[in-house]
Write a protein that binds this DNA or RNA. Sequence first.
DNA 1: TTCATTGTTCCATGTTGATGGAACGAAAAG
DNA 2: CTTTTCGTTCCATCAACATGGAACAATGAA
Lengths: 108, 108
Amino acid sequence: MAALYHHPAPEDITLLPLLRAVADPVRLGIICHLHSLGEANCTTLLRGRPKSSMSHHFQVLREAGILHTRVEGVQHHNTLRLDVLEERFPGLMTSILRECPTSLPENG
Amino acid sequence: MAALYHHPAPEDITLLPLLRAVADPVRLGIICHLHSLGEANCTTLLRGRPKSSMSHHFQVLREAGILHTRVEGVQHHNTLRLDVLEERFPGLMTSILRECPTSLPENG
DNA sequence: TTCATTGTTCCATGTTGATGGAACGAAAAG
DNA sequence: CTTTTCGTTCCATCAACATGGAACAATGAA
């Protein structure tokens, strides 16, 4: 397990990978949950899914520049990089997060 | 050939299919070109690609609610549904179109 | 040390979707 | 009517990616 993750710098975040990362139902659910919870680890967002799947989705989101993972002991806390994303693509995440259901759905 | 296309009503345009439609390099190129040209038919935007591929991409964009196709004789004129998209997802297309290169690239 | 927890990595499987040739269909021109 | 143009539809192929089980690694607790 690599304790340190690579988080792309703001200028290295590009639109197409970002859109690709968001354009998945599971990952969009993760984004909505993170937006609601502020911070969450992988296990918290498992909804009956295997860890390997979720770990994969977190990796995609991380490499797209959408979330930041902070390691604290065993747990990896994930947060949205909203400030960076807003600076890089003004209005994009805002318009996406506006579509997040207020009451989080089951399949998120 | 169905002379009439189905264009989803604004309330039937949903985020995930829209994101999926945009999250493709060819289709993102089509969007940028349409934004630049205002209106274009399929053949105009072929960049050495087969028509069947482009027709497929236009269909995806159309069904996602991103563009409108107006049939005029043999030619099918396509335009972005910017007003509808802005009403449905304020700021989304704006932030995406901001990323379009000013000088249109070859592989668009 | 031993065990439990957390998350990753590896790998195989399955599915989705992009690609592109070919045939077809509709409209307009010759 | 014949031909050309424009775009779709059909179909097969291929690549990318989501899925999920298993083993592993790292930390913390017993």
